[in-house]
């Protein structure tokens, strides 16, 4: 992953000096390990700050909503799918964008790594496929495959679907991954068991809305959680309110979620929020054969009507 950065910088510098774009959206090193920050580069000096490694798990498409002017954006597989979703939903025009595609081999899961060690993780170095994690009194080298974020481990669209230029050779897509293993497991439970499963899953939620803010799909000017007339969801920590929030958020992502994992990545409590969107993704796959963000010309199933749409649930 780290080898792409020279090429990324070269492209970024070129498109900026040629005046093709006004800024390039990428990542810079964060103030804590494993947390890269989004970075808007507008000059040669700020391009130098760009980094690319296995901690770029945030979704940069989030920063495109309703932007004016021309923008260069560094996009891995999931970012590019969300850019496509943005274009389809008229949130940005394709010709405003210069997409620098980056084939991705997955991002590492900082929740998992922090949980593996007792002390604070102070430094994470990456070289090729191995990751060295060190802190006060410990240092360990592990293979990246073991540390992948859950969504990256089952990702089947590692290469960008839409790009103007690539920063490296396309990587081989993962085959034979069961994307929906966790969903199938929950589907087998009874109604009560399911209810308890999700009750436990959500019990640590503190309603910080980090998942909503990190999500590239969540761009409503006024989010339903902030509406008070009528108030759709209470602002308390009551389990019903928490659940209503997560369910409604998931419905808003139906047929649009690309499983980029940004929500889980930013959750301070490490809740597996993808359990909800995953189920809807599976339904979209089963009912309409649809995966979000793969083509600029196709309309998503929930905004078109076809006479052969499934309707068994209607009496």
């Amino acid at each position: 992953m780290t080898q792409y950065i020279d090429k990324i910088k070269e492209i970024a510098n070129r498109v900026l000096t040629e005046g093709k774009v006004e800024m390039v959206i990428g990542f810079r090193k964060g103030s804590v390990p494993m947390m890269n920050q989004p970075h808007l580069a507008t000059s040669a000096e700020s391009v130098d700050e760009l980094v690319w490694d296995s901690n770029c798990g945030l979704n940069l498409a989030n920063y495109l909503t309703d932007k004016k002017g021309t923008i260069g954006i560094i996009a891995k597989g999931c970012d590019s799918r969300n850019i496509v979703t943005h274009v389809i939903e008229n949130k940005i025009k394709r010709d405003q964008l210069y997409i620098i595609g980056v084939p991705c081999t997955g991002m590492i899961d900082h929740h998992k790594i922090n949980a593996m060690f007792d002390g604070e993780v102070l430094n994470v170095e990456e070289s090729g496929d191995s990751i060295t994690i060190s802190g006060n009194g410990f240092s360990e080298t592990l293979s990246k495959q073991e540390l992948l974020a859950e969504n990256c481990a089952v990702c089947s669209h590692r290469n960008p679907v839409e790009y103007d230029e690539l920063a490296g050779d396309l990587v081989e897509e993962q085959k034979d991954v069961d994307q929906y293993a966790s969903v199938t497991k929950v589907e087998a439970l009874s109604a009560d068991e399911k209810f308890n499963y999700f009750e436990d899953l959500l019990s640590p939620c503190i309603r910080c809305y980090a998942c909503r803010n990190a999500c590239p799909l969540c761009y409503c000017p006024t989010c339903f959680v902030d509406e008070s007339r009528p108030q759709w969801v209470g602002k308390s920590q009551d389990p019903t309110d928490v659940k209503t929030f997560h369910l409604l958020r998931a419905y808003h992502c139906a047929g649009r979620c690309t499983d980029c994992g940004a929500c889980e990545r930013v959750c301070p409590m490490g809740i597996k929020i993808r359990e909800f969107t995953k189920k809807l993704n599976k339904d979209c796959q089963d009912l309409y054969g649809w995966e979000a963000g793969l083509s600029l010309d196709e309309r998503p199933p929930l905004d078109t009507f076809k006479t052969d749409d499934p309707d068994e649930f209607i009496k």
Partner: peptide, 10 residues
Amino acid sequence: SPKFILAGLR
């Protein structure tokens, strides 16, 4: 809207 259904159940 899904909101209505959840609001009703709530």
